[in-house]
Design a binder for these strands. Structure first.
Lengths: 344, 344
DNA sequence: GTAAATTATGAAAACGTTTTCATAATTATG
DNA sequence: CATAATTATGAAAACGTTTTCATAATTTAC
């Protein structure tokens, strides 16, 4: 069969030989360098197609110090928000001729550190990161930045003044919108299940919550504000705690949709009418929230817009980098919106 | 600031200079080649850490003809089944030191062809593909296979005898299980909304449906079997058609969950009781099916198992390739299971 | 028609590894 | 202790491009 047929890759030299030209000219023709004759260019392109030539990215990258590859570190690919964002990023980057290496930290800090190292070794042209919820020190990205590789954070971003670009949803406003919505639809005793405050996400969402409560002069009961890992089980436990007391909340702002779904489940199981006895609002507009009965109110984060912004900023930085222009490192904030549904 | 500090990458030569050794020895030490003294190895590792050295993958790959990178072409990252599969693939490959370049065809054939070219140019060590629903010719993968690069298809796989490995769910059995379940719970007039027959997925699911109907000697009405793009809108239209007649179905086997969800929505909007008037079963066990009311019966495809199988087969092939052993190209079929819920 | 400017090409070095081949250092064998 | 076998290291080539510098070919200017 194809046992004896040596698997050969055609190189630039094969084209050069076939056309009696130098490899330099072939390279220039393929990269359509201005100083190459139109006819030569056509000849080369034709011969390249004929030989089934494809540029060897490793050789090209080694010499030119560009990989045309962007790295992405994300907690989990299958989380709805991140899946949407990275779908957009991949499609957008493709338009500019960039590949995307996608890695998952599984929300584990040591994995994130390892991946930063690996992607550095792979000499990605840029790196996009949504941190783990525990990342508070960002020095594992230093070597990238020091080498002039743009690093862009999104969603879960550095809290301190780490000198990188970041793009995030308006979590403060999201928290504020959710809470004022609950208040304006008549709630007075509002509970809040949020994540650990090590992440900017929950700091901001909770701050928005507090701001709204304060503005409407409603008390925030300490026992009604939870900061925990936002899993289904934890949410159920928090609900059990909330509803074991005689004074019970009449609304819940859940800092993610999984928690909101679990809360609704708890309510159904325990004869708590939603929204009559308890209003619920979640965060992220996961597709499940629109399909559950009653449909859950939530906050839309526009993952597609986030993805597009990331890529446009990234392309800009890559262009500037070539011109050795100093990078502006301001944060970009993507607006959020309230989605009203039956649960509130 | 760091304006004047030249962004330097340390190379193997810097380590060699620092230790008065040759680059060859450094390379061997870093790849822990057997013929290098324990002490030297330690010295090198220590110095490498001290200098913050990281192997340049492009140089390494160019010379050794290995990229330690696997390419993946998938219709859309955000489809639940694929998101789960590729989450698993990425996590598994990471254990073996492989990176993953993920690309989306957006279910467009020309894009798939382009991506095959790009990933070939990137000299990926292997390629994993879930084809578009229209792919019936697979010659754009020839150049990969001819160069000895393993290509593994999953889920949407070649129908003809294309000489590659493939891994798929047992779609025939899935269709059969779904249909017999509907029959055994008392349905007689069963409709079936399926996808275009250009894809193995729907050929097999529909074949399973027909087999079950035949076995129970139930008639298959031609007007009750749809082959169309499985979108929400198309599903609603098909439902409208089905329920515009005087004789109406008492059960529906939808070949994906989006269609099942849309059908349930239609039923709710039109006062059709599920499961009393109409039983519904979907396909894939999308998270939404368990959360909707009534919860939808469906077929579990075990995406995690699919992902694990892909990687284990892949690693095996990469190992064999080094030993120049001929690749066995049998198909692997992952079992499916029926998930019974309230809709049937 | 010659000089100057422009355009097109080639030779060779460079990118940072890995690997082959040769050789030096060490250990085992008798 | 000499020789053989083994182990550790180095020199140099190689991987396939891109790019610098030089030079050849062509066009423009006068």
């Amino acid at each position: 069969m194809s046992k004896d047929k040596k698997p050969q890759q055609n190189t630039i030299l094969d084209i050069a030989d076939a056309l009696k030209l130098s490899p330099a000219t072939i390279s220039r023709a393929l990269n359509n360098h201005p100083h190459v004759k139109e006819k030569t260019k056509n000849d080369v392109l034709k011969m390249a197609a004929q030989l089934g030539y494809r540029r060897n990215q490793m050789a090209s990258g080694l010499r030119s110090n560009k990989t045309h590859t962007v790295g992405l570190i994300v907690p989990r690919i299958s989380m709805f928000f991140h899946a949407e964002v990275l779908t957009t990023i991949q499609n957008e980057l493709h338009k500019y001729g960039y590949n995307l290496i996608i890695c998952q930290s599984n929300d584990v800090l040591s994995m994130e550190e390892e991946l930063a190292d690996i992607l550095y070794a792979s000499r990605v042209d840029a790196l996009i990161v949504a941190c783990t919820l525990q990342t508070t020190d960002f020095s594992h990205f230093d070597k990238l930045l020091n080498t002039g590789i743009p690093v862009i954070f999104y969603d879960r971003v550095p809290l301190n003044s780490y000198p990188a670009t970041y793009i995030k949803g308006d979590d403060f406003r999201g928290g504020y919108l959710a809470t004022t919505h609950l208040i304006e639809t008549g709630s007075q005793r509002i509970a809040h299940i949020s994540g650990k405050l090590s992440s900017n996400l929950y700091q901001d969402r909770t701050a928005g919550f507090r701001k709204a409560m304060e503005q409407y002069q409603l008390p925030v009961k300490a026992e009604w504000v939870f900061h925990q890992e936002l899993t289904h089980e934890n949410a159920k436990e928090a609900m059990a705690e909330l509803f074991s007391e005689t004074v019970q909340p009449d609304a819940l702002f859940a800092a993610n949709d999984v928690t909101a779904i679990a809360a609704l489940e708890y309510a159904k199981e325990n004869g708590i009418q939603v929204p009559q006895d308890l209003k619920i609002i979640g965060y992220s507009n996961d597709p499940r929230t629109s399909i559950i009965t009653p449909a859950l109110s939530t906050i839309e984060q526009y993952p597609t817009k986030v993805g597009q912004k990331i890529v446009s900023v990234l392309i800009e930085q890559l262009k500037n980098r070539m011109q050795e222009v100093g990078l502006e490192q301001k944060p970009y904030v993507i607006p959020v919106d309230l989605i009203r549904r039956m649960s509130s």
